[in-house]
Amino acid sequence: MTDILILTHVDFCPPGHLGAVLDRLQLPFDVLRADLGELQGYDLERPKAVAIMGGPMSVNDDLPWLRAEIAAIRRFIERDVPMVGHCLGGQLLAKALGADIHRLPYTELGWQPMRRQEGQSPWLAHLPEEFPIYQWHGDTFDIPEGATRLLSSPWCENQAFSFGERILGLQGHPEMTEELVSGWVNGFPEYLDPSQPSQESADVMLANLPQRVAAMNRVAEGFYHHWLKLAGLV
Rank of each mutant, 00 (worst) to 15 (best):
A160T: 09
K229M: 08
L18D: 01
I101T: 14
M53T: 06
S58Q: 01
L228E: 14
G164C: 11
L88I: 09
D23R: 13
P113H: 01
V185T: 05
N208V: 04
H226R: 14
E108Y: 10
G164V: 11
S198D: 09
V213N: 07
E190L: 03
D193Y: 10
F188C: 05
P194L: 09
R79H: 14
I167Q: 00
Y106H: 14
L127F: 04
L228D: 13
I4D: 12
A160K: 07
L7P: 09
H17Y: 15
I52Q: 00
V31G: 03
P154Q: 12
P82C: 12
W111K: 02
Q120T: 11
E78C: 08
D203K: 11
L18H: 04
D43H: 03
F29W: 12
G183S: 08
I143C: 02
P47T: 07
L206I: 10
P56K: 02
H126G: 03
L92W: 01
Q117Y: 01
G55S: 04
D35L: 01
Y191S: 02
P154L: 13
L233S: 13
T148K: 11
D3K: 15
L233Y: 15
A160L: 07
A20D: 15
G37Y: 06
P56N: 05
N60P: 00
H102N: 01
M176A: 13
G119V: 02
H137Y: 09
N186G: 09
V234N: 12
L32H: 05
R149V: 04
W136L: 08
R33T: 05
Q40H: 06
H126Q: 10
I133A: 04
C13L: 02
L5R: 12
A51N: 01
A94C: 02
A125P: 03
Q117N: 05
K229L: 10
D61S: 07
L228F: 15
V50E: 02
D35I: 00
E145D: 13
G37V: 07
G16D: 11
H86Q: 02
H225M: 13
G98K: 01
R103S: 14
D30M: 07
M205T: 10
A231W: 14
V10L: 11
I52K: 00
E108W: 09
R212M: 11
F76W: 15
L22V: 05
I77G: 00
Y106Q: 06
W155G: 10
N208D: 15
G222R: 10
D80L: 02
L230K: 13
E157H: 13
R74G: 14
L192W: 05
P210W: 14
E175A: 08
P197A: 08
H102S: 12
R79W: 05
D43K: 01
I143Y: 01
M216C: 12
N208P: 02
G183T: 12
Q40D: 10
I52H: 01
R74L: 04
Q135C: 09
R166P: 00
L32Q: 04
F188R: 03
F161V: 02
L233A: 13
V185H: 04
R116P: 00
W155Y: 15
A202T: 04
H137P: 07
A125F: 02
S195P: 03
E108S: 07
A71P: 06
V204L: 09
E45L: 07
P14T: 15
S195C: 04
L36I: 01
P64T: 02
V204G: 00
F223W: 15
R67E: 12
V10F: 15
